[in-house]
């Protein structure tokens, strides 16, 4: 979503993005001329008249589970967004009984918060696991 019209979205997709992604952009490119939606989400920059690089993960109940907002010159990391969605899906499937420690990715150890884990995380999780 950006402040561009849907006509400009069409031109960007057809002229440039379809050369990077076969078949063009697979998801809807939304138009927020005036930034009304961006204001509600806290990503509209009044001075520049544009929206910053905001990314929101919304769960099946419509609840925001995560967001990240960057200023324009730095692009995002799609793999990290997907990793976070996978982590939130795991937590949801476990009905909140499991939690994903720092550095978790699919296949890595999860923790089960509870009375037995208090003060014992150091036995279950090592700092190297944050970045291995």
């Amino acid at each position: 979503m950006s402040i561009d019209s849907m006509y400009v979205h069409k031109m960007w997709n057809d002229y440039e993005l379809s050369k990077m992604v076969q078949g063009g952009i697979p998801f809807p490119m939304l138009s927020d001329t005036g930034g009304k939606v961006g204001k509600v989400y806290g990503v509209y920059d009044e001075d520049a008249g544009v929206e910053t690089r905001g990314r929101f993960i919304i769960d099946p109940d419509g609840v925001i589970q995560a967001f990240e907002v960057l200023t324009p010159p730095v692009g995002r990391n799609v793999a990290e967004a997907i990793r976070q969605i996978q982590a939130f899906q795991l937590v949801r499937e476990s009905k909140g009984t499991e939690a994903t420690p720092s550095g978790w990715k699919p296949g890595k150890k999860v923790l089960k918060p509870g009375v037995d884990l208090v003060g014992r995380v150091w036995e279950e999780w090592k700092t190297e696991m944050a970045s291995d």
């Binding site: 979503m1 950006s2 989400y41 544009v50 929101f56 324009p72 899906q89």
Partner: peptide
């Protein structure tokens, strides 16, 4: 709200053709 029941990623960006 048409996307209720699915995981949804909502992304904002400064503008079409803005490079990154």
């Amino acid at each position: 709200s048409e996307y209720l029941g699915k995981w949804t990623l909502l992304c904002f960006y400064p503008g079409d053709f803005t490079f990154v």
